[in-house]
Design a protein around this nucleic acid. Structure first.
Lengths: 342, 342
DNA sequence: CTGAAAGCGCTTACAG
DNA sequence: CTGAAAGCGCTTACAG
């Protein structure tokens, strides 16, 4: 008595009602008598029936799907970014599922077409853009998306005049918290170690927070204590060695990422500097490794779950034409052993 | 002159042809004169037209989408699994895109319904199952999938009588290669350190390869050299400490995963054992960290790209009703410094 | 509360 | 090489 690919008409025939009533019942319309509804649902379950999404989508002009465009640098050494993005991805899928949306995944290259196509082809109702660190370069493409009336939201900072919705981490605040903590435990000569490339707005913001904390404490930022290091253990290690051999006095390091911090810690230890006795170290990201290194790394944590919810609620809001506002969430300082506060 | 949401009819009107011809032209049908085709395509591009996937899917009963069901243990400490699965995921999306398929992502819990729904609702043409390490428990659900004529493929070992297609890594072969290498460089008392839970068929297979290599060398596996350790640095460290204090003689460790190997290396070093002079260590996975620890870890690498291609070609083969065969791919031994071969 | 009917935007036999 | 027409399986105004 099984039907191969049952349709709502098959259910209707068995239930002795019209196909329209089946459709209503399955969508829990109060127009259908509760009793009838339940009977129809039971039959649907029995026949293993599920609404054909193509047909429903064609009718309603919706897909109940969000396309996640993950910009992937294909740079495997940058484990940090991938780990956090992966965690965001994971939480986005969960948040979206809670709101009844599926997630379509797409990995983009820098030079890819920007898949306005996803929405135009009704494969997705909106887009989430992840990992596009370099906003300037994309300004034009974002404008094209906006121009095509595409719904989209971006993981990242609030950029003035940037089209679309965005949600991100308040990196400035994170940098401030980290630096403030170091000042609070009595450190005076605090090094900032991070990327100074124009393509790293996150690091810029973290540095800005560092500067604000110093200023508040009446300390003039010293350019000799700003060390350039891209996001890798190797770069952190190199920067720390150069710093030591330069002869600068310092008693703390605020690193733009955990990887940089961990590299710096290793170099310092190898060269006989004690952590946290001689030098306090604070990182940024709270990657899994941070808790395992010795001493355990004090760091700034971004809440991936909250980030994912912000993005999903943003895009769903846009899709359902509710008012949404671009926001930054405050990160949280996780105090461990590497700064000596405990 | 822009249309808000152009349809094939809009294109047809502008091109002065029928809607059917537009449909044919856009699918590159040789039935349409090349010249006409090009003209139609140009107009489509100009109007930013993309075929409505819901309508096309409804007509053809296809979605050109693969659902990726990622079984997620929600166990964050198990970084290994997640990293490799993430890499698989990444490559799956790329491979699928090359074959014209989108990827829908779904994170499953152990007790979730198994989303026969994905295919029944025409959201996906087939499923890829990732991270379902424990086949026995799922046997029944896999049978239900098969019974519903669902197309699916599983990342994992060849399991006798398991329904559906599968693609995986030849863990036995990997265990053999690792152990054989240790024997080749003169090690005699080789410890196996890994999970002995029945839920870790991968570790079982790796152990089986270890046993085969020993047997081939005329060595009787010694149960006292089989140490139980789940996949974490902590467990590797603990196991190594216990091993040392047990007084057993050993000159090499083959660890079921890199994390275990790294934990063991740390414990050994802390207790004054030199690596690789006193003890050779080999891991499994080649996680990014493996190359960075000191000494750099010799390990067995699974090729995520090849794995992803195997899975995608498998599922697309099933969807398009081509013959497919379940396969295992051989992993590759990566020789670094931790075993002293160089 | 329920049904008959229209129509979403395609693809593809069928006819020429 | 091209067009007219049917129909995929739904949702929802309209009528009762």
């Amino acid at each position: 008595m099984k039907v191969e690919n049952p349709t709502s008409r098959d259910i209707a025939d068995r239930a002795g009602v019209s196909q329209a009533t089946v459709s209503r019942a399955l969508r829990d319309s109060p127009l259908v008598r509760k009793e009838t509804r339940d009977r129809i649902k039971a039959i649907a379950r029995e026949l293993n029936y599920f609404v054909n999404r193509n047909a429903a989508g064609l009718r309603t002009h919706q897909s109940n799907t969000i396309a996640l465009l993950l910009f992937d640098d294909a740079d495997d050494t940058d484990t940090r970014m991938n780990l956090f993005l992966m965690s965001l991805l994971d939480n986005i899928v969960r948040s979206a599922a809670r709101l009844g949306y599926d997630v379509l995944l797409s990995l983009q290259q820098l030079n890819d077409d920007w898949h306005i196509e996803y929405q135009a082809s009704h494969r997705a109702d909106g887009l989430i853009l992840l990992g596009y660190g370099d906003y300037v370069e994309y300004r034009e493409k974002l404008a094209a998306l906006a121009n095509a009336n595409t719904h989209f939201t971006i993981w990242g900072p609030l950029v003035k005049d940037q089209p679309g919705h965005s949600f991100g981490c308040d990196n400035e605040n994170g940098g401030y918290q980290a630096t403030r903590h170091l000042l609070d435990i009595g450190r005076k000569n605090i090094v900032f170690m991070g990327s100074t490339s124009w393509r790293s707005p996150e690091h810029d913001a973290r540095y800005a927070g560092y500067v604000r904390a110093l200023n508040e404490a009446g300390i003039q930022p010293d350019s000799r204590l700003k060390c350039s290091a891209d996001n890798s253990e190797h770069q952190g290690s190199r920067a720390a060695r150069e710093l030591l051999s330069s002869g600068e006095t310092f008693d703390a390091i605020f690193a733009g990422t955990d990887l940089i911090a961990i590299g710096a810690m290793r170099a310092l230890r190898d060269l006989g500097v004690r952590i946290p006795e001689d030098v306090s170290v604070v990182g940024f990201d709270d990657m899994p490794l941070a808790a395992y290194v010795s001493p355990a790394l004090t760091t700034v944590q971004q809440n991936a779950k909250m980030g994912a919810e912000g993005l999903v609620e943003g895009i769903v809001g846009l899709i359902e034409r509710k008012p949404v506002e671009s926001t930054l969430m405050a990160p949280r300082l996780i105090v461990r052993d590497s700064c000596g506060a405990k």
